[in-house]
Design a binder for these strands. Structure first.
Lengths: 291, 291
DNA sequence: CGGGTCTTTGATTAGGTTCAATAAGAGTGG
DNA sequence: CCACTCTTATTGAACCTAATCAAAGACCCG
C-alpha cells in the first residue's frame, strides 16, 4: 500500500506542471467522475479558513488520492513533505509509544488537516490509517507555505490552523487529566455528534467507524470500560447503542455529565429520566428514550 | 500586575520606532545593566532555531519585560497579539476547565515559547503565571510573521516551532493515556533534569519551582500521589528528595521505569540497588544515594 | 459454514483518590 | 526576634474507579 501511495505521488509530480495551467480543463472532469484535483479556494473552504480573494493568479491544483480501509496515508519515520486534508472518509492517527503500544491521537474526518507533526522533525512522528474508503487531498507543504507568502490571508490561516490543533491537543490533555471515564466517553460522543452535524449528517444517529479498542486508546481507557460505559448510558436512556450504531437521546446531559449516579440508583434514575422525557412540559432537549 | 504589564507594553509601542534604527546604541546598555532588548539573532538562538544569515537588514528589537513571582504574563480571554519567549525564570501555563479547576499545561523555562494558543481564536485560551522572577521577551506576532516573510528560513522555523509544540502535546496525551502514576512522575523528573542540563545547570541536583499540586495537575494526578511517589523513589534510592530539593541518583532507571515493584519487596529492592551502586563495576550512571 | 475480530458482561484486583491529621516552611507583624 | 498564620508537604486508612482476567455471544469475510 505504501507502494500505491508512491505511485500516486509520482503522478502528482509528473502531472502538476501540465495541470497547473489548464486547470479549467480538468475542472470539467471533476463534475462527472471522481474528483481528482482541488484548487486553493476549495481547500480553504474545506479547512473552514478565510480564503484569499485573489485566487486567479494561483491556480495550483491539489491532487486527490483515494485510500481503502486499512491503508496508511503516511507512516512513522517517513520523510515529511505533505500535509493532508480529508475530503471524505474516516481515519485515525496513531503514535507508537516506547513499549510498542499504539496510542490513538485523533480521528480525522472531512475538513480535517493532518500531518502537521512532521514539520518539525522533517519526519512524521505519527501514522495515519484509513478507517473507511477515503478521499484525501495532498498538500505539498513547501508549495502551501509559498502560497502563503503571496497570500497573507492564507499565511495567517495556516498559523491559525496549527494553533487550533495545538488548542485541541491541550483540551485533550485537560480531559485526560481531570475527567472520569464516563465523562470522557460522554464528551467523545458529543464531539462526534457535533462533527457529524457540522458535516451535514444527522447529529443524533450515526455509526462509529472505530473499534472500542481504538476509542479506549484515544480516551486513555480500556476497551472494556468503553463498552461498559456505552451500556450504562444505554441503560439510563442517554443513548441507544447496538454495536457500532449509536443514537443520541439526551445530548445536553452528555455535554455536562461529570459522573454517573451509583448503579444501585440507576434503575430509579432511568425511570426518572423516562418520566422527565415523557411528561416534559418545560425541557428544551429531552427526546424520548426509545430506540 | 496587569496594569504593570500594560505600562511596559505601552513603552514598547512608543519606543519601538525610535529604537528599531539606533539599536546599536541600545546594545551598549545591554552589556551593563539588565538586558532590555534583544535582536532577531538572539531570539533565534534562544529558540534553538536556525537563524536567518542576513540579520543586518532587520535590526528590529524585541523588548524584554520583567515579572515577579505570581504575576501573570497573559490571562485567559485577553486579546492576542504577542508571543513570549522565556529568557530567564520559570513559569506555568494553565487552562481553566468548565468546572473552574485549573489544569497545568506546561512549565516554560529558558528558551521556551508560549502564547501560541492565542493565534487561532485571537484570544489566549490559557494563562501564563511566573513561578519565579522572570525575564520575558515580547514577540509581536504580526512583526514576527512579517519578518518570516522576508526571511524564509525564519518562516520555516516558526512553523517548525509550532509543530514541535504540537508533538510535545501529543507526547503528553500519550503519557497521560498509557503510563502509571510512577512512570509519569519519573518522566517528569527526567524531563526536568534534561532541561536543566540543556540550560547549563546541574542535571542531578535542582530545586523544583512548582508545588506538588501543580505537578499533579500537570501529570493528571493528585498532589498526594505525587508526594507518595517522590517518597517511594527516595526510599528505593532513585532520587533524594527534601521538600523542593531534588537529587537524581539513577536517571537511567527513571527513564525506563514503567512500574515499581510491590512495596513488600521494596526494602529488598532498595538494598539491591544500594549494593548495585556500591559494588558497581559496570554501570555507567549509579551514584551513591547519600543526600 | 468456520475462523477471526469485535463486543459484551462478570468477577476480581489493584492503583490512585479521598478524607484526615500532622509536620514543616515561608511570610507577616507585633 | 519570636509568635502567629497560611501555604505546602508528608503520611495513613478507607474507599472506589477502572484495569485485568475470563468467557461467551455477535458480526464479518473468505
Amino acid at each position: 500500500m505504501q507502494i500505491e501511495y508512491k505511485q500516486e505521488n509520482t503522478v502528482l509530480a509528473t502531472q502538476q506542471n501540465i495541470v497547473s495551467q489548464p486547470a479549467r480543463a480538468a475542472e470539467a472532469a471533476w463534475q462527472r467522475s471522481a474528483k481528482l484535483w482541488s484548487n486553493l479556494t476549495e481547500v480553504c473552504e474545506l479547512l473552514r479558513i478565510s480564503c484569499p480573494g485573489a485566487t486567479l493568479d494561483s491556480d495550483f491544483a491539489f491532487q486527490h488520492v483515494q485510500f481503502k480501509s486499512g491503508q496508511r496515508i503516511h507512516t512513522i519515520g517517513q520523510p515529511f513533505d505533505m500535509l493532508y486534508i480529508v475530503n471524505s472518509g474516516f481515519l485515525k492517527t496513531v503514535m507508537i509509544d516506547e513499549s510498542g503500544n499504539e496510542q490513538v491521537l485523533s480521528f480525522p474526518m472531512k475538513g480535517d488537516l493532518f500531518g502537521i507533526d512532521g514539520i518539525h522533525s522533517r519526519t512524521y512522528t505519527s501514522e495515519a490509517v484509513a478507517l473507511s474508503s477515503c478521499d484525501i487531498i495532498l498538500v505539498p507543504f513547501k508549495k502551501f507555505t509559498s502560497l502563503g507568502r503571496s497570500h497573507p490571508e492564507l499565511e495567517t490561516s495556516i498559523y491559525s490552523v496549527m494553533s487550533r490543533e495545538l488548542v485541541r491537543e491541550q483540551a485533550m490533555v485537560s480531559m485526560l487529566g481531570s475527567l472520569s471515564a464516563e465523562a470522557r466517553v460522554a464528551r467523545f460522543l458529543v464531539s462526534l455528534s457535533d462533527r457529524f452535524g457540522a458535516m451535514g449528517y444527522s447529529n443524533k444517529e450515526f455509526n462509529l467507524r472505530m473499534t472500542r479498542h481504538e476509542i479506549g486508546s484515544y480516551l486513555g481507557l480500556t476497551l472494556e470500560t468503553v463498552s461498559r460505559t456505552f451500556s450504562a448510558f444505554n441503560e439510563i436512556g442517554l443513548i441507544s447503542v447496538d454495536q457500532r450504531a449509536i443514537c443520541i437521546n439526551d445530548i445536553s446531559a452528555l455535554r455536562t455529565l461529570r459522573r454517573l449516579p451509583p448503579s444501585r440508583s440507576r434503575t430509579k434514575a432511568a425511570a426518572a429520566a423516562a418520566a422527565n422525557a415523557a411528561a416534559a412540559a418545560a425541557p428544551v432537549a429531552a427526546p424520548a428514550a426509545g430506540a
